[in-house]
Amino acid sequence: MKPATDPLAQLTEIRAIMERSSRFLSLSGLSGVGAGVVALAGAAVGHWYLQTHFGTRGFLRLMEGSEADRQAALPFLLGLAVVMIALALLVAFYFTWRRAAQEGRTLWDAPARRLALSLAIPLVAGGLFCVGLYLRGAASFVVPGLLLFYGLALLNASKYTLDEIRLLGLTQMGLGLVAVLLPGWGLIFFALGFGLGHIGYGLVMYNRYERAPRPTL
């Protein structure tokens, strides 16, 4: 006689298959750690540049300064942002590609494409909006805007990947709202959200899903 099939086990297997076909589950926690390290390094470089050109209160002086000051700093700040985004994407691609290969999954499948698109639309819109804020003299709202739009992008993308992304998105939005009230602390909130937030999220995800279990004695 064939052994009886466990209905609960069947339902669990069906649910796992449906999740794999509709959600990108190979996102690596190490990619979050790497992106966080890149963000902290970028914040340090930005702080050095602003102190060098605008004095010890460089960030605050840039926000309160003239349009000529903002225009002069814009090429460096945009270049720094491009380098940071490129490095973060390279780190995320490498670690996520490695995890997908270990799991025998395709990196650029349908769920991955949906995830990328759902992230890209709010991020591009938010980036352009924040550049507009900067050029219009509202530089104090740039970092809060970046955090808010990034949080919205993560919330929008969370339905296509791991559920923990939603918590990271809410955290970024919360930091963005607080940063509105403390405009002189923009670089600190940038480092907290994009730096330490990513590192903490990445470590949690790595320990939860990727770290090999310790052998029991």
Rank of each mutant, 00 (worst) to 15 (best):
Gly176Arg: 04
Tyr206Thr: 04
Tyr160Val: 07
Leu119Thr: 02
Gly137Thr: 02
Tyr209Leu: 10
Ser21Tyr: 06
Gly127Glu: 04
Ser28Tyr: 06
Asp6Ile: 03
Gln71Leu: 15
Ala88Asn: 08
Leu177Cys: 08
Thr161Trp: 06
Met18Thr: 03
Ala120Val: 10
Gly193Thr: 05
Ala112His: 09
Pro144Ile: 01
Ile188Tyr: 11
Leu89Ser: 14
Tyr201Leu: 09
Leu128Cys: 06
Ala73Ser: 14
Gln102Val: 02
Leu90Ala: 14
Glu13Trp: 00
Lys159Gly: 12
Leu78Glu: 04
Leu217Arg: 12
Gly193His: 06
Ala4His: 12
Pro215Ser: 08
Ile17Arg: 14
Pro215Trp: 05
Leu167Val: 14
Ala92Cys: 06
Ile121Leu: 15
Ala73His: 08
Leu40Thr: 01
Thr171Tyr: 13
Gly132Cys: 06
Ala44Ile: 04
Pro3Leu: 13
Gln172Lys: 06
Ala139Arg: 01
Ala120Pro: 02
Gly137Met: 01
Ala92Gln: 03
Val45Lys: 03
Met63Tyr: 07
Pro183Asn: 13
Ser118Cys: 09
Gly195Gln: 05
Arg57Gly: 09
Lys2Gln: 15
Gln51Cys: 10
Asp163Tyr: 11
Ile199Phe: 00
Arg208Glu: 12
Gln51Trp: 06
Trp48Asn: 08
Leu155His: 05
Thr106Pro: 00
Phe93Asp: 11
Gly184Arg: 11
Val38Phe: 11
Tyr49Ser: 01
Tyr201Thr: 10
Val124Ala: 13
Leu74Gln: 11
Tyr134Phe: 15
Arg214Ala: 12
Ile121Asp: 08
Tyr160Asn: 08
Leu147Tyr: 01
Ile85Leu: 15
Ala81Asn: 08
Ala39Cys: 00
Val45Leu: 14
Glu103Val: 00
Thr52Arg: 13
Ala212His: 13
Glu19Phe: 12
Pro183Ala: 07
Thr12Ala: 15
Leu154Glu: 09
Pro213Val: 01
Gly104Phe: 00
Ala68Gln: 15
Leu155Pro: 04
Gly58Gln: 07
Leu90Arg: 13
Gln71Val: 11
Gly127Cys: 05
Arg61Thr: 15
Leu30Asn: 02
Gly202Ser: 04
